[in-house]
């Protein structure tokens, strides 16, 4: 059974790839959920194997950059029997449409899932404007 999924509209912007990798190794795009309320934007990213100290989050010019380093988890004297997935770091850049209050960003990494709460800056919060009949 798969949970009933809502119809989704994909953003047209392509996810930027890391330009020049300075370190060797594979780089993967983590799967993300992004949703917003009137007050905040929340980003959930699947990054299995990333510990809190390997996580880097940056926000610059409206682009959120997630980068997670994975330390090799295999022991020294283990030899491969079967390889079905590769191990590498995670990298993804996400453009954000609204202004973010940078001082109130919260990040939590739990069970390999990053949960990032980005409160909107005051001017981006929609206001109700009442029209009074003149």
């Amino acid at each position: 059974m798969v949970e009933s999924r809502e119809l989704q509209v994909k953003e047209k912007q392509e996810v930027a790839t890391p330009g020049e990798q300075t370190r060797p190794g594979l780089v993967f795009t983590p799967e993300v959920d992004i949703f917003e309320t009137d007050q905040e934007i929340t980003v959930l990213a699947d990054m299995p194997g990333v510990a809190a100290d390997g996580m880097n989050i940056g926000l610059q010019n409206g682009v959120l950059t997630l980068s997670g380093d994975v330390k090799p988890w295999e022991g020294q004297d283990e030899t491969d029997v079967l390889v079905e997935f590769e191990i590498g770091k995670y990298y993804r850049q996400l453009p954000l449409s609204d202004d973010i209050d940078q001082s109130k960003i919260e990040a939590k990494l739990e069970d390999g899932v990053l949960r990032l709460t980005l409160p909107k800056a005051q001017k981006a919060v929609p206001r109700q404007i009442t029209v009074t009949a003149g």
Partner: peptide, 16 residues
């Protein structure tokens, strides 16, 4: 995640 949310992306999947 609650009722009043609007998704921009939904790539993470649930299932058995």
């Amino acid at each position: 995640e609650g009722e009043n949310i609007r998704y921009h992306r939904r790539e993470r999947e649930a299932g058995r």
